[in-house]
Every structure is written in structure tokens, then in C-alpha cells.
Nucleic acid binder design. Structure first.
Length: 964
RNA sequence: GCCCCGAUAGCCCAAUCGGCAGCAGGCGAUGGUCUCAAACACCAUACAGUGUGGGUUCGAAUCCCACUCGGGGCACCA
């Protein structure tokens, strides 16, 4: 073997020809990967369908474990060592579960529609399918080297027509349903149509269903469907040439991908009525074993707030506001409408009321002019400008006054852009004394304030002298009474905030001018994109423009060939541009002759495509039944793998590992789809993912030259704590690993130098799985040395013969073994692989020191490390004389008798300082221990005749004596 | 501005319920064995008192309060 690597050592072949070298590791690893593949070692049988295994015993009776990684996007750049961290972790856990008798479903598919392939296609002319499939092949190859125990039969890709036919099918399910608020679930739209037709449900507007045209009916149903097309204000991103969902836009009004400006634009787009599920998406979080931080992010994103709707009369009309603080209604001294609010035009009078302050008019001669000018100015502002100017409140008086419903006092009505049209009713009652934003506005426009919540910080009840609003919940209401004692009178004075809210809400409800209500921050999900490389919608339009869903039999609607894949992008700042879809360029595809029941007619296809979240919204279901042509998933298989159990009341995959960056987007969308499918009876589970685990990132040092540009990290020289690149000093900092920072390390490099088992072990031992940690290539050798020592304890480096002995292990060795097994089991179950590795190393080091390894111990050690370093374990297992793969062999079980020590060291403290140590039995009682400690000569000497005030005994480890 | 998470040797990290801070583990450093020499491998040694300041307790890395630094989320959501 002439090929050597630095780690294997040039002379190894001479001095230690059978050492565990990189070359030997490579040979073992590729051999076992072939065996696993050939024997289908990781095939998980289903209870039913074509992945059922007739030879397997009753599968449904076997405990199952469905382990998932977040769907990867196969990048053209290839993997770096940060990518497989989670895949290795799930593989270790999956192998551990398999050795505990579970039927383990673990596979990996590819989320492969999306922007990068399209951009690459535009640059190179390569069809996205070609480049995407090449990337998938490359990633599969890279991952195969790591020895991941995936079931290859279940590895799907979202771009496969056989996959996306079901994505389109699910879209049709959602399109053909509505949300029944009474039943709290989705129902088929046909049931709504039937209710409209037979009169059990009134058609909105009181019309007769039978008399409506097809287009009119479709318009009515559009307000109910869970997927609907509508002209809505959307996030239009000219730089990307597409619209974006709210979740894809950053706080400063830019696209998450590409960082282009985003503009509000009214466009006809596809939406998903995710808001119908707001409450269930919040409450069902309680069923899940997820990190609290992620649950919190989802709750915040949905943003449920309880409050009240209150009507304010303006002449003959009324303005409805939403408030979370109806208790402060007496403090409402003015109102604000969003500039785009419909009622603005109708309330504006012809002239300014007498005595209108100059500052309120914006310098305009009439209210109508002022409103028009302010609206124009507000509309011209980008979100970024709005953000920056958020501190300075702007607005203009409409000339109208409304009546405060509790006090009867007139309050001026303003428009201002600090009130958002998209939240609540687009109108607020302003309570400047108790809201920071209203306070700032009131100060700018010299509006009156009234204190109605008693300040608890000694500032007094006159807001004139305040620096800011007082907004606590923890106080009582004051100055809030009107015509008390009369029939219509009300007083909130002296009530706590919570009681006052209830009291005023009851009062408003009784008079029909308000009611308790709940508002959400969450908006409906914008579901269409103007892209080429995505799932086409299974929707066509007839010559009257009426929408028709394609029947199931016409699926999949395949992505057509076009001359040019590029989206029509614009100057990123051109807010007046409008989207053009790539699919519309192929007229042969757009115009089709179909028979949808009324004979063959000409239709034209929907040319938007679905966002790339679509494919990842339901892939867990397809992993279960990847080749089912009849159903999205066989209920028997879904029930088995995902169905609710006592441990997971909502059902879902047993473990889902991935990055925290998907906290709201993917996880919220996937939960929503799953719930719709549940409501329609297609799945038994309520939630897709029961246990979620966020793995940390692998970071790496970034080196920057004088100009601040990253230089290749691999070429850095270190001298005396300084870093140099090509002789020039450079600065070091921590950063994300990746191509752009020139610090990526490929898993292949590490596997070449040490073997995949070493890489797996190192990644698992770097630290807890959920925290980010820096990559250190130099440290990898530690894991390699461990595997060498493990090998050497079992196989002779000089002869290649087994060196295990046939002796019976002594008690100390058994204790070391069983303690390690006990600890490693607990760590594996808790996904604490770093400490599991440490315990395995500790045991192995013990065996090195011992000088020889009894065969029975060697076997247990091999099984113990098998999930972490499966190739070397399989090889040693075979050399130890076993014919079969150890993948399904029972994991070692600790004997409790050997887990506890025969004696433990008890420390005796005097006032917290250690003064003596005692060897005692683990079962010793507190009293015995106390007596023993007080009798110890060293302790007696240390007390030195001082008074013993107190003795704390914590058997068997500690006694603390407090002297006076 | 608000919310969440974190801080232990030169570095990555351990430390069940508050109970001896490290023979959990690893990297690196130093010395040694092996070698003609080196690399590999092996053996041995040293290095912190837990970000800062207070508090609770017989006892605090662990609980509480304030602050500093780092990471993440939200941000005119009424």
C-alpha cells in the first residue's frame, strides 16, 4: 500500500502493519457500507403496503421510533463538516434505538425546488433538474461515506413528479375545504355548498344560492376556502422578481434571501388561511416536547391578544377599534385611523372645525387636502423609512370628532402611520397617559391626556409633568366614572385592571357597542411565487375567468419546459414594477384543452408556482409510505409511525433534529398542513413532530487581512500567538463555517485523513449537541487515538490476531464496565453524546491500563460504541466471531449490582472545609455516618474541643460539622 | 427598547437533588520512552477556583438580585 497519509504514518506498515490506520479505516468503512446496503440492514418494515416485510413478525406490535433530520437543500457547493452534525447525531440515536429493539425509521430526502438551482440555471443554461439531481447525487455520495444508517427506499425528493403529485393533491384538499368555526375544524367545501343550497346556512348577503352564477358562487366560496386567490397587499420584491410571505421579510423591510428591498403592493395572489388555526397552533404546543424558546417564538409570532372591540360614534357612522386595555377607555382622548382606512373619506368634513390648531392641519386649507397629502407621503415611505422614523410621530387631523362611548366626550380623529391597517381594525382609541406610542403622539400634537390608572411610582396623577406613559397592569383604575348610579352610568374607580376590563366589556356588550374579542398578529400565508422551479398549481381558468380545480386523475401537473427559466427581475428599487411569471412564457403549456365534466373546452393554467416550503410541509408523511400510488399515506402506516400514544398525545415523529432558524417558518407551515389533513381524516396524528431538538452550529475561525477580507483559513500560520497569511499578519475571529468566509472544512478531508468513524466521534464529542462550538481540525486526532486504542485492546497491531483473553473479568473491571454502560445508556437516551463518548473513552483507558481485555468485556465495549463508531464496531464484532451485523444486536445492559461502588468516599467538613475522608458503604445511614465522623481522630483534632452546634449528614457522601 | 439563552484551566468541555471544582473526556504545552533522526504511537507532568458585585444557606459553578460581555428572537401589533 503506497498511499499513506500523515496520520497513518509512513513507517506504520513496517512496525505495526495491523494498526488501525486511515487506510485500514477506509477499507473497513467502505466494506461495511456495501454490506449494509446489500443486506438492507436499515430497511424499516411497514405494517402494510409494499414496504411491509412478510418475513418479519407482527410489525405493528413492535415498538417504533421515527427519527428525522430537517430536510436538506442539496447545495452545489457540497457539504462542510458543519452540515452532517445533526445527521450523525440522529444516526447515533437511531442505531442506539435499533439495538434496543425498536423498529427504527430513519431516512433522508431532499428539498430540491428553489431559488439557487434556478439562479444557477440562469447563469449556466443548465436545466434546474439536471443541476439539482447532480447535487443530490453528490450529497448522497458524501453522506454515504459517513455510514449513516438510512433506509434508502424512503429517500424522496420534492422535485420527483411522483412526490409533487401529492403536494398538489394536498393543495387541492386545502383548496376544497373551509374552516367551520363552530366545529373548530376544517370540513370539505362540498358540505358548505350543500348548506348554502338547502338553506341551512345563509349565503352572505342573503342571496339565493341557486340564483348565483358560477363566478358569483366561486367568489362567495373564496371567502371560505382554506386556499384562496385574492387581491391582497403583498410583499413585492422587484430584485427577486417575486412576492414573499411575511415570514420571509426581515424587520427592516428586506428579503430574507438576497437582502433586497420589499414593497407593499396590491396583487392577486394565492393565500393559505393559516389564521383559522391560530388558536390550535398555540394550544397544541402544549402537546409537544419542544424547546421552550421555540414554543415562545411561535406564540409570539401568532401573537394572540385578548381585548375588546369598541364602537366610537362619528355622526351617523361608527369607527370600531380594537384594544387590549378597555379598562382605560375613560382615558381615550383622541382616535387614530390608519391612513388607508376605508372610513377616512366618509368622516372628513368640508372645512376645519372652528379653533382647529394650526399644528393639526399639516398646513392644508381643508381636511380633505390634508388627508390626501398625508396619505401620499405615507404611501411613499418604504418600510425601512417607517422603521427609522418610528420615534417621530407624524399624522394629521381629519377634521372629524368621535364620541367616547363611556364618557360621552368628543374626541378628535386623526390619521397617522403609527397605526397599521393590517392589525386589529386599523383604528385605535388613543390613551396617551397609558401607552408609550400614544403619549409620544399626544405630546407632538399637544393633545390632552387623562390619567385613569393610578401611578404606583409616585409620579402623581397629572400627566402634564410625566416623561412617558404609565402602562402597568398592577394598579387600580381612577378618574373613570360617568353618571354613576343611573341606568346607563358606569364607574370603574377602585377596580383592578383585570376586573375593570371585565366590567367595561360587560357594560359595552349590554349596550351593543362593543364585545370581548381576540386578535392575532399572524396573517394568512402568501402561497404563490413567480418562479419557474417550483410546483405548479393544479388550477385552470375557463374563458370567463372562473377558477377550476383539476381532478385528482390529472395530477401531477408537471413543470413544463420553457426557453428561459429566469424570473423577470427588476431594478431592486422599482416599486412600480409588477411580477411576471416564467411559466406564462410557454403558451403551449398555459392553454390546454380539457374535459372537466362539461365536455372538452379550452382552459388556461395558473402560472404561479408554490413556495419552496410546500414540499417540506408534509414530507414526514411520505417517508412513511414513499411509493404508495393510491394514497398520500396508508392510514395503517401513518397510525403506526405517527399515531398518538400516551407518551405523545398529539402523535408525530419521535425525534426531529434541525437548526433553530426554522422556528417559525417551516415548523408553523408544516403544523398547519398536518392539522388540515387531520381534520379531513387523512392522518390520525394532530402534530407532525413530537420531539424537537435544535442542534447548535459548528463555527470556525475566520481570518481577515488588513482590508477585512477573509483569507483561506487552511493556509494560516501561527507564530507566538499571532496569525499570518502569506507572511502578512491577519486577524482572527469566530464565524459561521462556509465558502464565503473561506473557512470550510469538508467531511471528505477528515474522512480521508482519519476515517469516517473518527469524524463521527469527534463531532459528537465536541460538546453538547444543542450549543454552537468551534471546529478545530487539530483536535480531531484525539478521537482517532481513542479508536486506535480500542482496536489495540482487541487486535494485535503486529500480527492482526485477536488479543482478547478468555479469563473471567475481575470485579473491578466489571464495575468499570457496568458503570460505563449505565452512564452511556443514560447519555444516549438524553442525546448527550459528548459525555457518552467520554465515558466510553474512560472505560477503554481503564482497559489499556489493565493490560489485557477479557473477551466478554471486549464484546460489551464494542456494542457500546457501535452507534457512535459503527464501522470499526462491526469489524471488531466480526473478528470476535460473530457472523451477523451488530445493528440489531441488543445493546448492553448494566447490572445494578456492579453500578454502585462497594465503598464510597465520604468527606467530613468542618464549617464547609474538608477535614477528613471516610471510606463507607453506600448503604450507610445518616446517623451511622454522623457517629462515624464524630469519632474520627482527624475530625476530633480539627474540632479541638469547640462546641458542636449542628451536624449535617448527607449519607453516604458528606458530613458537615458546624462548630460554635 | 423588550424578551430568551449562555459565561468553569491556553482551548473545546465534565460536575444527578445546592454537598470534595477535574483519575469524565479531548486538544494544546512541557518532560520522557521508542527511533540513526523524525513522524506516528506510548508514558508522565503542570495549568483554573467557576464573567463582576451583592444576597440566601451549615455549604453556591448550581438558587435570588444587579451589572458586564457574547449569542438568538421581536420591534409603532394598540
Amino acid at each position: 500500500m503506497s498511499e499513506t497519509t500523515p496520520a497513518s504514518g509512513a513507517a506504520d506498515t513496517a512496525t505495526a502493519p495491523f494498526r488501525y490506520s486511515a487506510a485500514l479505516a477506509a477499507e473497513i468503512e467502505s466494506r461495511w457500507q456495501d454490506i449494509w446496503e446489500k443486506e438492507g440492514t436499515f430497511h424499516a418494515p411497514n405494517p402494510a403496503g409494499d414496504l411491509a416485510d412478510p418475513a418479519a413478525a407482527d410489525v405493528a406490535a413492535k415498538p417504533h421510533s421515527f427519527i428525522m433530520d430537517m430536510f436538506p437543500y442539496p447545495s452545489g457547493a457540497g457539504l462542510h463538516v458543519g452540515h452532517p452534525l445533526g445527521y450523525i447525531a440522529t444516526d447515533v440515536f437511531a442505531r442506539y434505538q435499533r439495538m434496543n429493539g425498536y423498529n427504527v425509521l430513519h431516512t433522508l430526502g431532499y428539498d430540491s425546488f428553489g431559488l439557487p438551482a434556478e439562479q444557477y440555471a440562469v447563469q449556466t443554461g443548465t436545466h434546474p433538474r439536471v443541476s439539482t439531481e447532480a447535487n443530490i447525487a453528490n450529497m448522497r455520495h458524501q453522506l454515504r461515506r459517513l455510514g449513516l444508517g438510512h433506509d434508502p427506499r424512503r429517500s424522496i425528493a420534492t422535485i420527483d413528479p411522483e412526490y409533487y403529485r401529492w403536494t398538489q393533491w394536498i393543495f387541492l384538499q386545502i383548496f376544497n375545504s373551509w374552516y367551520d368555526e363552530q366545529a373548530h375544524r376544517a370540513r370539505p367545501i362540498s358540505e358548505l355548498v350543500a348548506a348554502f343550497a338547502d338553506g341551512t346556512r345563509e349565503v352572505p348577503g342573503g342571496r339565493d344560492w341557486a340564483a348565483l352564477s358560477g363566478a358569483e358562487r366561486e367568489e362567495v366560496l373564496g371567502d371560505y376556502r382554506l386556499a384562496y386567490a385574492k387581491e391582497v397587499p403583498v410583499n413585492w420584491c422587484p430584485g427577486l422578481g417575486t412576492v414573499l410571505s411575511n415570514e420571509e421579510v426581515t424587520a427592516d423591510g428586506r428579503s430574507e434571501r438576497g437582502n433586497f428591498p420589499v414593497f407593499k403592493s396590491n396583487l392577486r395572489q394565492w393565500m393559505m388561511r393559516i389564521t383559522a388555526y391560530s388558536d390550535r397552533l398555540i394550544s397544541d404546543l402544549d402537546l409537544l416536547d419542544w424547546p421552550e424558546a421555540i414554543k415562545l417564538q411561535q406564540r409570539n409570532w401568532i401573537g394572540r391578544s385578548e381585548g375588546a372591540r369598541v364602537d366610537f360614534a362619528v355622526g351617523e357612522r361608527k369607527i370600531t377599534v380594537f384594544t387590549t386595555r378597555p379598562d382605560t377607555l375613560f382615558g381615550a382622548t383622541y382616535m387614530v385611523l390608519a391612513p388607508e382606512h376605508d372610513l377616512v373619506d366618509t368622516v372628513v368634513p368640508a372645512a376645519w372645525p372652528e379653533g382647529t390648531p394650526e399644528a393639526w392641519t399639516g398646513g392644508a386649507a381643508t381636511p380633505a387636502e390634508a388627508v390626501t397629502a398625508y396619505r401620499a407621503a405615507a404611501a411613499a415611505k418604504s418600510d425601512v423609512e417607517r422603521q427609522v422614523e418610528a420615534k417621530v410621530k407624524t399624522g394629521v387631523f381629519t377634521g372629524a370628532h368621535a364620541v367616547n362611548p363611556v364618557s360621552g366626550e368628543p374626541v378628535p380623529v386623526f390619521i397617522a402611520d403609527y397605526v397599521l391597517m393590517g392589525y386589529g381594525t386599523g383604528a385605535i382609541m388613543a390613551v396617551p397617559a397609558h401607552d408609550h406610542r400614544d403619549f409620544a403622539f399626544a405630546r407632538a400634537f399637544e393633545l390632552p391626556m387623562r390619567c385613569v390608572v393610578e401611578p404606583t411610582d409616585g409620579r402623581g396623577e397629572d400627566p402634564a409633568g410625566w416623561d412617558d406613559a404609565f402602562d402597568t397592569y398592577d394598579s387600580v383604575i381612577v378618574n373613570s366614572a360617568h353618571t354613576e348610579g343611573t341606568e346607563d352610568g358606569i364607574s370603574l374607580n377602585g377596580l383592578g385592571v383585570v376586573e375593570a376590563k371585565a366590567a367595561v366589556t360587560t357594560w359595552l356588550t349590554a349596550r351593543g357597542i362593543g364585545e370581548g374579542t381576540v386578535n392575532y398578529r399572524l396573517r394568512d400565508w402568501l402561497f404563490s411565487r413567480q418562479r419557474y422551479w417550483g410546483e405548479p398549481f393544479p388550477i385552470v381558468y375557463d374563458e370567463d375567468g372562473v377558477m377550476h380545480a383539476l381532478p385528482e386523475s390529472m395530477l401531477p401537473v408537471e413543470v413544463p419546459q420553457v426557453d428561459d427559466y429566469s424570473p423577470h427581475t427588476y431594478d431592486p428599487f422599482d416599486s412600480t414594477s409588477t411580477p411576471k411569471t416564467p411559466l406564462s412564457r410557454n403558451e403551449d403549456w398555459v392553454n390546454v384543452e380539457l374535459d372537466l365534466g362539461d365536455g372538452v373546452k379550452t382552459y388556461c393554467r395558473e402560472t404561479n408556482t408554490m413556495p419552496n416550503w410546500a414540499g417540506s410541509c408534509w414530507y414526514e408523511l411520505r417517508y412513511i409510505d414513499p411509493s404508495n400510488r393510491e394514497q398520500v399515506v396508508d392510514p395503517a402506516n401513518e397510525q403506526y409511525w405517527l399515531g398518538p400514544t400516551e407518551q405523545k398525545p398529539g402523535g408525530g415523529a419521535d425525534l426531529y433534529v434541525g437548526g433553530a432558524e426554522h422556528a417559525v417558518l417551516h415548523l408553523l407551515y408544516a403544523r398547519f398542513w398536518h392539522k388540515v389533513l387531520h381534520d379531513l381524516g387523512h392522518v390520525s396524528s394532530v402534530e407532525p413532530f413530537h420531539k424537537l431538538f435544535n442542534q447548535g452550529m459548528i463555527t470556525a475561525d475566520v481570518y481577515r487581512d488588513e482590508r477585512g477580507f477573509p483569507v483561506p483559513a487552511a493556509e494560516i500560520e501561527e507564530r507566538d500567538g499571532q496569525y499570518f497569511w502569506q507572511g502578512e499578519p491577519v486577524k482572527r475571529e469566530a464565524g459561521k463555517m462556509g465558502k464565503s468566509l473561506k473557512n470550510a472544512v469538508a467531511p471528505d478531508e477528515i474522512a480521508d485523513e482519519y476515517g469516517a468513524d473518527t469524524l463521527r466521534l469527534y463531532e459528537m464529542s465536541m460538546g453538547p449537541l444543542d450549543v454552537s462550538r468551534p471546529w478545530d481540525t487539530r483536535a480531531v486526532v484525539g478521537s482517532y487515538r481513542f479508536l486506535q486504542r480500542l482496536w489495540r485492546n482487541i487486535v494485535s497491531e503486529t500480527s492482526g490476531e485477536l488479543v482478547v483473553t478468555d479469563e473471567e473479568p475481575d470485579e473491578a473491571t466489571l464495575r468499570a464496565l457496568h458503570k460505563a454502560v449505565d452512564g452511556v445508556r443514560a447519555d444516549m437516551a438524553g442525546l448527550r453524546f459528548n459525555t457518552a463518548v467520554a465515558k466510553a473513552i474512560e472505560l477503554n483507558n481503564y482497559l489499556v491500563k489493565r493490560g489485557s481485555t477479557p473477551r466478554s468485556v471486549a464484546e460489551q465495549v464494542v456494542l457500546m460504541v457501535a452507534p457512535l463508531a459503527p464501522h470499526i464496531a462491526e469489524e471488531l464484532w466480526r473478528r470476535l466471531g460473530h457472523g451477523d451485523s451488530l445493528a440489531h444486536t441488543d445493546y448492553p445492559v448494566a447490572d445494578p449490582a456492579y453500578v454502585v461502588d462497594e465503598s464510597v468516599t465520604c468527606v467530613v467538613q468542618i464549617k464547609g472545609k474538608v477535614k477528613a475522608r471516610l471510606e463507607v458503604a453506600p448503604s450507610i445511614s445518616d446517623a451511622e455516618l454522623e457517629a462515624l465522623a464524630l469519632a474520627d481522630p482527624a475530625v476530633v483534632a480539627a474540632i479541638g474541643g469547640a462546641e458542636v452546634r449542628k451536624v449535617i449528614a448527607r449519607a453516604p457522601k458528606l458530613v458537615n460539622i458546624v462548630t460554635g
